[in-house]
């Protein structure tokens, strides 16, 4: 994880957030099932997953949501605060495949004394397909802020 701070005034629309690469193993899916309490068998029982028409076990949507959370909180740094995080699961993702979490600043603004940026974020698979698009809003510190 990144420990340096991200400051609001250094950002601009189009700024690219440092990307993050994740590769979930089946073991991690079991670990996530235990930690989250989501024991739906499509995430660790291949026979079951295939019987429901999937080609194999799939990554929990909520784990992909968590990867996008880490993308934002790593970048925002210890002084940043995640205010909004949203994503849609448009495509299935499978274990042992590389996933890249990426994001771009789309709006920089102040609201109620807060210094905020909105971002488009997504996960893409190794073929470059966006399986999980989303958005996020982060509150960041501002060096010149009087508050």
């Amino acid at each position: 994880m990144k420990c340096q701070d991200t400051y609001w005034e250094d950002l601009y629309e189009g700024f690219e957030i440092p990307s993050l690469t994740k590769e979930a193993t089946t073991r991690q899916l079991v670990q996530y099932a235990g930690a989250s309490g989501d024991f739906y068998e499509i995430h660790y029982d291949k026979d079951f997953a295939v019987s429901t028409g999937l080609s194999g076990v799939i990554i929990h949507g909520a784990l992909k949501n968590a990867f996008l959370g880490t993308l934002m909180t790593d970048w925002a740094g210890p002084l940043g605060i995640l205010r909004k995080l949203s994503c849609q699961y448009r495509g299935m993702d499978y274990p042992d495949q590389s996933l890249s979490a990426k994001g771009t600043v789309t709006r920089k603004y102040q609201e109620n004394g807060r210094f905020l940026v909105d971002c488009d974020i997504h996960l893409e698979n190794s073929s470059g397909e966006i399986t999980t698009p989303g958005t996020a809003t982060v509150e960041l510190p501002c060096r010149n802020s009087a508050s």
Partner: peptide, 12 residues
């Protein structure tokens, strides 16, 4: 019976 998660939108 079959279930899929479509997505989540969080506000903190």
């Amino acid at each position: 019976d079959r279930l899929l998660d479509g997505g989540s939108s969080w506000e903190y």
